[in-house]
Deep mutational scan, measured.
Amino acid sequence: SEEEIREAFRVFDKDGNGYISAADLRHVMTNLGEKLTDEEVDEMIREADIDGDGQVNYEDFVQMMTA
Results as ranks from 00 to 15, higher is better:
residue 51 D to E: 08
residue 34 E to S: 15
residue 7 E to N: 10
residue 14 K to L: 10
residue 32 L to M: 07
residue 17 N to A: 06
residue 12 F to A: 04
residue 43 E to F: 12
residue 58 Y to P: 00
residue 1 S to F: 14
residue 6 R to A: 03
residue 24 D to V: 04
residue 67 A to Y: 01
residue 27 H to E: 13
residue 26 R to T: 08
residue 4 E to V: 09
residue 61 F to K: 00
residue 15 D to V: 08
residue 49 D to E: 10
residue 12 F to L: 05
residue 38 D to E: 13
residue 61 F to C: 04
residue 65 M to N: 02
residue 65 M to E: 00
residue 19 Y to A: 04
residue 19 Y to P: 00
residue 16 G to K: 07
residue 54 G to A: 05
residue 30 T to C: 12
residue 52 G to N: 09
residue 29 M to T: 02
residue 8 A to M: 09
residue 7 E to F: 05
residue 36 L to T: 03
residue 59 E to N: 10
residue 58 Y to H: 01
residue 33 G to F: 15
residue 2 E to M: 14
residue 42 D to M: 08
residue 20 I to T: 01
residue 22 A to C: 11
residue 13 D to C: 02
residue 38 D to I: 12
residue 66 T to M: 14
residue 42 D to C: 08
residue 48 A to F: 08
residue 8 A to P: 01
residue 13 D to T: 01
residue 39 E to A: 12
residue 56 V to I: 13
residue 33 G to T: 11
residue 35 K to G: 13
residue 26 R to K: 12
residue 24 D to C: 13
residue 44 M to A: 04
residue 61 F to M: 06
residue 64 M to N: 04
residue 29 M to R: 00
residue 9 F to W: 05
residue 13 D to E: 02
residue 14 K to I: 09
residue 3 E to V: 07
residue 67 A to M: 03
residue 34 E to W: 15
residue 4 E to W: 14
residue 38 D to F: 10
residue 58 Y to S: 01
residue 53 D to T: 13
residue 56 V to S: 01
residue 38 D to G: 08
residue 3 E to H: 12
residue 54 G to R: 05
residue 19 Y to R: 13
residue 66 T to D: 03
residue 8 A to E: 03
residue 60 D to L: 14
residue 18 G to N: 03
residue 11 V to H: 10
residue 64 M to C: 08
residue 45 I to V: 05
residue 22 A to D: 04
residue 20 I to W: 01
residue 1 S to H: 10
residue 7 E to H: 10
residue 60 D to G: 11
residue 32 L to P: 00
residue 24 D to Q: 05
residue 52 G to Q: 11
residue 56 V to C: 04
residue 48 A to P: 01
residue 27 H to F: 13
residue 66 T to H: 11
residue 7 E to K: 12
residue 39 E to N: 09
residue 4 E to I: 13
residue 63 Q to H: 10
residue 64 M to I: 12
residue 40 E to K: 11
residue 27 H to A: 12
residue 41 V to F: 12
residue 16 G to D: 06
residue 8 A to I: 05
residue 22 A to N: 06
residue 6 R to M: 08
residue 50 I to S: 08
residue 64 M to P: 02
residue 52 G to D: 12
residue 22 A to S: 08
residue 56 V to N: 00
residue 32 L to V: 05
residue 61 F to H: 00
residue 35 K to Y: 09
residue 29 M to S: 01
residue 24 D to A: 07
residue 35 K to C: 12
residue 57 N to S: 11
residue 12 F to K: 03
residue 67 A to R: 11
residue 55 Q to M: 14
residue 13 D to Q: 01
residue 60 D to S: 15
residue 31 N to H: 14
residue 27 H to K: 11
residue 66 T to I: 14
residue 13 D to V: 02
residue 55 Q to W: 14
residue 2 E to C: 13
residue 16 G to W: 03
residue 65 M to H: 03
residue 48 A to Y: 07
residue 65 M to Q: 03
residue 52 G to S: 09
residue 32 L to Y: 13
residue 25 L to C: 05
residue 65 M to V: 08
residue 29 M to A: 03
residue 46 R to K: 12
residue 31 N to T: 12
residue 31 N to R: 10
residue 1 S to C: 13
residue 42 D to H: 06
residue 15 D to I: 06
residue 57 N to Y: 14
residue 61 F to P: 00
residue 18 G to A: 01
residue 17 N to W: 04
residue 10 R to Y: 03
residue 49 D to M: 14
residue 2 E to R: 13
residue 20 I to L: 03
residue 27 H to V: 12
residue 12 F to R: 03
residue 47 E to W: 15
residue 19 Y to W: 11
residue 56 V to P: 00
residue 62 V to I: 15
residue 18 G to H: 02
residue 33 G to V: 09
residue 20 I to K: 00
